[in-house]
Computed example of a mutant assay.
Amino acid sequence: MTVCVGAICEGGKVVVVSADRMMTYGPPMNLQAEGAVRKIFQLTPQCVMLFSGSVPDGEEVFSRTKAGVIATPHPDIKTIATTAGGVYIAHKKRRAEEAILRPFLGIDFAGFQTLAAQSASSQVMAQVLGLLSQHNLGLDIMIAGVDADGAHLHVVSHPGTVMSMDTVGTVSIGSGGMHASIRMSLARHKSTSSLAQALHNVYEAKLASEVAPGVGKVTDVAVINGGGIKFVDDGIIQVLQEIHKDRPSLDTAEVEKLAEKCKGYQHAS
């Protein structure tokens, strides 16, 4: 239960991401809480991960993905996303073993594959296969970053599918994802949009998503480009709050006001 929004801008050279701070903890806690921790996690100096779903599952995928790419000098964003997809699949497999295979059969996946080959038509096997087919982490992941080819957005979702969103140029995940996506569509955001326009669109999309269950009110926004990752300061957030409106576009004066505050973010230091 959360929202994460991403948008490519500046002709495919910069990506803006935003997230709330609502945390969801599954059993045995079954808790939702809005804390002080940002949900935009740095994988490399020019790439971040955001996720919606259970915090323990998300943190596990994040830590294993970071460990998988940290040894590679300057990995491209597609490689990072593919690594995250592999980690997602492996983690889902472990969770299925813990929740289904060991409690019901006392075996791991390797043992299950052997058993399935020997008794594929048994009733118990059919029941276990049904449980495995329904097993879903409920975890969606966004990978956003910049490499030598420009800015990129990828989504990793059940059961570990990796999808590039570069052509669309925007992506929203979480319980508020639909509301955020509609708001981005109304804004007619394109990868050629300016940084100021992207900041406004992403911020407004996050605000629109707050009507969805489980979306927190605190908003974090980060800009990623060839120079690195930079979280926007309170001055930009204040301008975004001042020009907040129901209609999706800005007038010239508003664009200029926001663009003035954005100086220094096109090329992060």
Rank of each mutant, 00 (worst) to 15 (best):
M1S: 14
V3F: 07
G6M: 05
A7D: 03
A7T: 03
I8S: 01
G12P: 10
V14T: 15
S18G: 15
S18D: 04
D20L: 05
D20W: 03
D20I: 12
M23C: 14
T24R: 03
Y25S: 07
G26M: 08
P28M: 06
P28S: 07
P28C: 05
N30T: 07
A36S: 12
P45S: 08
Q46W: 01
C47I: 09
M49G: 04
S54E: 14
V55K: 05
P56G: 05
D57R: 00
V61P: 05
T65Y: 03
K66T: 01
K66V: 00
G68H: 07
V69G: 00
I70L: 11
T72D: 13
T72I: 15
P73E: 11
P75I: 06
P75R: 02
I77N: 09
K78W: 02
I80P: 01
T82L: 13
G86R: 03
G86W: 07
H91I: 01
H91R: 06
R95V: 14
A96F: 02
R102T: 12
F104W: 06
G106E: 11
I107H: 09
G111M: 00
G111P: 01
F112C: 07
T114P: 00
A117F: 03
Q118C: 15
A120F: 14
S122K: 04
V124P: 03
V124F: 00
M125I: 13
M125Q: 05
Q127P: 08
V128N: 10
V128S: 06
L129S: 15
L132V: 01
Q134R: 14
Q134V: 05
N136F: 05
G138F: 04
I141F: 09
M142I: 12
M142T: 11
G145H: 06
D147V: 11
A148K: 13
A148W: 04
D149K: 11
D149V: 09
G150D: 06
A151W: 07
H154E: 00
V155N: 08
H158N: 14
P159S: 14
S164L: 02
M165N: 10
D166L: 05
T167Y: 10
T170H: 07
S175A: 13
G176A: 10
G176N: 02
I182R: 07
S185T: 15
A187F: 09
R188W: 09
K190M: 12
K190L: 14
S193L: 03
A196P: 00
Q197N: 12
H200Q: 03
E204W: 09
E204V: 08
A205Q: 09
K206W: 04
L207R: 15
P213E: 12
P213Q: 13
V218N: 11
V221Q: 08
G227E: 02
I229Q: 04
F231Y: 12
D234H: 15
G235Y: 03
I236S: 02
L240K: 09
Q241P: 06
E242T: 14
K245F: 06
R247A: 09
P248K: 11
S249A: 10
L250G: 00
T252E: 15
T252F: 10
E254M: 07
L258Q: 06
A259S: 15
A259H: 06
C262Q: 10
C262G: 04
C262W: 03
G264T: 06
Y265C: 04
Y265W: 03
A268C: 13
